[in-house]
Design a protein around this nucleic acid. Structure first.
Lengths: 183, 183
DNA sequence: ACCTGAACACCGTTCAAGT
DNA sequence: ACCTGAACACCGTTCAAGT
C-alpha cells in the first residue's frame, strides 16, 4: 500500500506539483479513505519527502550505471538529457524536484533538504562526466559548469512545459551543445 | 482597488505560486472580504491572467528602453540577467511566468496564453540583442539561441531558488558566459 | 458600482472508534 | 497494524441582499 501510494503520488506531483497533491484524491485512486493515508505518511510533507528521497535514489542508481558503462562524456550527457526529455513526453511532466523548487515556500523543511540532496547528487554526477573530457580544468570549474548544465536543462524543461512544446527543449539543448556548454 | 489587489497578488504569486494564492488572504491584506475580490476579478484565473499580462507589458517597456539606449549585447544581457537576479534577492521570488509554468496543469487557458506571450516577447528581445553581435547567423539560429538563453536563465533562477542560494544563479550565469552561450 | 454574509463542495489534519 | 467517519479550519465560487 505504501508503494502504491508513492507511485500514484509521484505521478501527480510531477504533473501538478506539491500544492495540487490531494490526500482525498490520492486515497480514492488507491481505494482507501483520506484519513488512512495518514497512517502510512503522517503528513503531506512526509509523503513528499519520501517521494523526493526515492526519486533521488532511483536517479543515482541509474546514473551510476551509466558511468560504469561508458566514459564517453557525450554519450553520458545524451542519456542524461533524455531523462528530462522523457518526463515531458510522459504527459508533459516535470522533474519532481524541479517542480517542487518552484513551490519552495510551501514546502516543509524535510522536503527542502531532499531537493538539495537531489541537486547535489546530479551536480556531482555531471562533474564526474566533465572529468572525462580532455581539457584541463580545476575541480571548482567543473562543479560550476556542472551546476550551470543542471540549471540549463531544468530551465529548458520548465520553459518547454510552460509552452507545451517539446521542440523548445530540443532547440535549447542543441544550442547548449553548439555553444559548448554541454559535452 | 483593482491596482492594490494586483500589486498584492503579484508579490504572493512570485513568492508562492498560483496555487498558493488565496482570495481570502488577498482580501484580508487589502481590507475587503473575499467575495468582493470577485467583483474586480471574476475568477482566480482572470486575476492571474491580468497579472501575467501586466507583467509582460512592464517587462517589454523596460526591455525596449534598454534597446533604445545601447547596442552593446553584453551590456544588454547584463541588465537582462539582473532582472532575474533581483527577483531572487527580493525574498527569493521567481519570475511570475516561470513559477506559473511549473503549475501549468492547474492553470486556466487564459493564463497559459499569457505565459506563451511572455516567453515570446522575451525570446524576441534576446534575438534582437544577438543581432548586435558581429558573427553572421541566420534569424532561425538567433531565435534558437535566444530561447536557449531564456531557458538557461529561468533554470538558473529555479535551481538557485530551490537551494535558497543565489550563488547558484551567479555561478550558472558565469558558466553560460564562459561557454559563449550568453554574449 | 462596490461590498457583504451565508452557503456549497473542496482541502490537510486530528482523533476516537473500529477490525 | 490498518482503516474509518466525523469534526476542525481552510479553499474558490456563487448568490441574494445591502449601500
Amino acid at each position: 500500500m505504501r508503494e502504491t501510494l508513492m507511485a500514484a503520488a509521484r505521478l501527480t506531483v510531477q504533473a501538478h506539483g506539491y500544492n495540487a497533491l490531494s490526500f482525498r484524491e490520492l486515497a480514492q485512486e488507491v481505494g482507501i479513505k483520506s484519513a488512512s493515508v495518514h497512517h502510512h505518511f503522517p503528513t503531506k510533507g512526509a509523503l513528499a519527502a519520501a517521494l523526493a528521497r526515492r526519486y533521488t535514489e532511483d536517479g543515482v542508481a541509474y546514473l551510476s550505471d551509466l558511468l560504469a558503462r561508458s566514459s564517453n562524456p557525450t554519450w553520458c550527457m545524451d542519456r542524461y538529457v533524455e531523462i528530462f526529455r522523457s518526463a515531458l513526453t510522459n504527459d508533459n511532466r516535470m522533474c519532481l524536484c524541479g517542480i517542487m523548487s518552484a513551490e519552495l515556500d510551501d514546502l516543509p523543511p524535510e522536503v527542502r533538504s531532499e531537493i538539495d540532496a537531489f541537486t547535489a547528487t546530479n551536480v556531482e554526477w555531471i562533474a564526474k562526466v566533465l572529468e572525462f573530457s580532455k581539457s584541463k580544468t580545476s575541480a571548482q570549474e567543473r562543479l560550476d559548469r556542472a551546476i550551470a548544465i543542471f540549471s540549463a536543462i531544468e530551465g529548458a524543461q520548465l520553459v518547454a512545459r510552460g509552452g507545451q512544446d517539446i521542440s523548445i527543449f530540443d532547440r535549447s539543448v542543441q544550442a547548449y551543445r553548439r555553444a559548448g556548454l554541454i559535452p
